[in-house]
Design a protein around this nucleic acid. Structure first.
Lengths: 340, 340
DNA sequence: ATTTATACCGAAATCGTTTTCGGTAAAATC
DNA sequence: GATTTTACCGAAAACGATTTCGGTATAAAT
């Protein structure tokens, strides 16, 4: 399998490597005749420029690194989808890595991407990240970086996020506006900022409406799973606590709850209203269909890669870059699991 | 941002580039003293070997290309998950691309990966692929290739698949064994081999059990969506056709049907049995829980990347490679949507 | 006829690493 | 003391493309 190079083309045509290169790259100082000859031969031999050599020379790889906690997640697979798609259109390829919520793994992966000399890096931070020095290292290396969804404000780079607090506030407000007074919250783990922010939004909405915040109505889903939603719904129901609504950290948790209430013949939303978070496609599909807050994964991915490519371009041109933080709007999607 | 190179290390230490390189790569002909000096300085300056130069020299990129129809799919995101994970352990990175079921796009992406000079390629073919020449091109280029799930037998390379026909046969057989006699099939589109094979398995199972195959009981889901499952269930129900079971091409379609029957107060599995395909995690979660055939995405991804890396290794050592086709076993997972 | 402009072409340096192949000094052997 | 071995080191040639800078013809201008 003999490799076709500029050298082989040049020697076949009896010209120099320089001229061959210039012919293919539309330099003006090559005659139409030789240009045609080179192009024709290149096509005939199926010449493919050696990207390793090009990379070395141009010092860019046209590859972007992407680290997310887990790809097997509707939200993240949508993000990845958008990123891959947009990047490809702009001539960039994406190397994807998953941290599995392990900060140690995340650090290794950052190292890997830096070693690969990718042109830029996109990260959604793992929940357990405390030490920010590996992230700072990226910035120091001069590699453009954009953080999204799960970010840290302490890093000096561009970011794309939603306002979890406001979104949770809106969800809770929707429950309040539709007449609910005793609202439970199935929250996420205690550490992640997302989970904290949503809890805070929930609490703030209660307070702003002069509703009593009852700590015993807050259940913590460690794994944010269907089962937890199901079991906490059962627990809540059998406890005979006075509750007329649930705000769940995630649609999956909410659907767990719905499943229990359906089985227990508790009417939704007459007896209890339920609202989820993320607007997973299953939300519109189960019955009753689930009200939710949309978390625009595709949009987020697209905005993040767009921002990153812009910074890469700017740096290449030696321009100064101003880091931006884009906050994507979220909307409460009203369906049948909450009242009118 | 001055780049740290072997050259800068060497000149700082007053030694040659060669020796610096050898010190870092554990060559025996460098004294412990200079080795230590080089290693220490390299660490101090945070030296990162220029991967572009290494690639050029070693002619390998340690990158694998992966093309799938869509990443936003539980099955495929599981495949990707496994591939990324295993590859990383073995020192390889994954560039992921999605064809969106477009053969034109798929061809461009193959071109992209070939131009990038990835060390190997993994593909799950798009449904519309007729012309196999772009795939042959990969083989001709000498790039190791492994096809999985949606493959073509006409390509001379290794493959990882399930036997859709047998799996569908087993699903239908399960319905028959549990007393069903009039079994409908919500099939997929007419083109894709997967869809055809599952239909054939269904038909064969009926014939082998001397059950009548009724063409009017076969519904074609063009988009393989929840809505189609729901609507065909409705259509079937209102048609008053005699039917006591449905085999759906996919769990999503099956869940659509279940949702309709739940609403219509048709008892599952007493009045009608339903079995899906893929063993999506939602199958165990809805009520009644859905019987299904597991389609081991994670296993498939792992086997595929393993096979590919093995071939890459073999080629590097100049060994001959024998292409393998791995057929992964599938199992009928019995849950509450079918009878005992 | 001489100068100037134009149109093409190519030598060579460069990117940073890897690896082969000699070379020199010191130590070991006879 | 002469020879061989051992232990280190480095020059230089790759890998393949890009780009600068200078060159030589030929055509145009004076």
């Amino acid at each position: 399998m003999e490799q076709v190079t500029l050298k082989s083309i040049a020697s076949e045509l009896g010209i120099s490597i320089t001229t061959a290169s210039k012919a293919l790259k539309n330099y003006p100082d090559v005659s139409p005749k030789t240009r045609k000859a080179v192009i024709d031969l290149a096509r005939k031999l199926n010449y493919i420029p050696n990207s390793f050599a090009v990379n070395l020379r141009t010092k860019e790889s046209k590859v972007i690194g992407l680290i997310i906690p887990e790809i097997v997640h509707y939200f993240f697979s949508n993000v990845v989808n958008a990123i891959i798609e947009y990047a490809e259109k702009k001539g960039y390829l994406i190397i994807t890595l998953q941290s599995n919520e392990s900060d140690k793994l995340e650090e290794k992966q950052i190292e890997l991407l830096l070693n690969k000399r990718v042109d830029g890096i996109l990260i959604s931070l793992s929940n357990n990240r405390k030490d920010l020095s590996p992230i700072h290292k990226i910035v120091e290396s001069g590699t453009p970086l954009v953080l999204f969804d799960k970010i840290s404000k302490l890093i000096n780079c561009s970011k794309v996020i939603i306002n979890d607090r406001d979104a949770a506030y809106a969800a809770t407000e929707h429950l309040i506006n539709t007449g609910c007074k005793d609202i439970a919250h199935f929250r996420g783990p205690l550490n992640p900022q997302n989970s904290i922010d949503r809890f805070l939004g929930y609490k703030k909405a209660l307070e702003d409406s002069k509703l009593h915040f009852d700590k015993s109505l807050v259940y913590t889903c460690e794994k944010v799973s269907f089962e937890e939603g199901y079991n906490f719904a059962k627990e809540l129901h059998q406890s005979n606590k006075k509750v007329d609504a649930i705000f769940a950290i995630t649609d999956l948790v909410a659907i767990g709850a719905i499943t229990y209430f359906n089985e227990a013949n508790v009417k939704i939303p007459e007896d209890i209203s339920i609202i989820g978070f993320s607007n997973w496609f299953m939300a519109s599909v189960i019955s009753p269909s689930l009200s939710s807050v949309d978390q625009p994964g595709y949009e987020m991915g697209k905005k993040a890669i767009k921002l990153l490519l812009k910074e890469i371009k700017a740096i290449k041109k030696g321009k100064k870059i101003k880091h931006k933080t884009i906050v994507l709007p979220t909307n409460v999607i009203k369906r049948s699991s909450t009242r009118d």
